[in-house]
Amino acid sequence: MNDKPVQTALGGVTYLEHIPAMPKRERILARLGHRAATTILTDDQTAFLERGIEEALLLCHVKGAYRRIPVAECTDRIIRLENGTVFQSAGLAQLLSRSTEVVLMASTAGSAIMQRIAEEVSTGSAALGLILDATASHAADAGLDWMVSFLNGTLQRHGKRLTSRRFSPGYGDLSLEHQRIIFDLLDLDRMGLFLTEKYMLIPEKSVLAIAGIEGITE
């Protein structure tokens, strides 16, 4: 063992240094305004798109973290966790109405891709920058998808699963200020993330989410 004894992850947070996340191509295209029924690409444009997506995937280093916390109380607009954390949102409360625990999650596509996007848009090819940007957005989302799938795999053997949807701060009536609560509970400094005064995550292609754990009853 190394000099210092191995400690458990801080407060039960599990950190993932490399998530094998693969964003869905159709989502990337949709974000770029592609419509399957109408949009027509030449061979060159298709090749340009594919190269852009491939390049983005190379530069995205998807990392993540998650933490499970039991729910102490869930009213019609307030969710109180066992550690004293409170979320105020009627939409989230409805989602978690059958949940015994919440899972807080974070995923980031990393900073290398952001640097490249900025370079392309300012001095290179803005079109390529857009493709990189869209791919990175969905790579971060795919990181969350991977964690959801992973957690469902582990929960299933206990007759449990995650709620079919997940909430992110800024979604519905869950205000963006909740970013700070999740950021701190996951200790995301440790992953190299930063939260601005206005609750924006840096690197920009980073996302936070909350889902509930509920029993499989049917």
Partner: peptide
């Protein structure tokens, strides 16, 4: 073409560039 969704955003930007 962009208005009619025949082009998507990267095509619009490629043409602009």
């Amino acid at each position: 073409l962009f208005d009619r969704k025949v082009y998507y955003l990267p095509q619009l930007i490629q043409s602009a560039e």
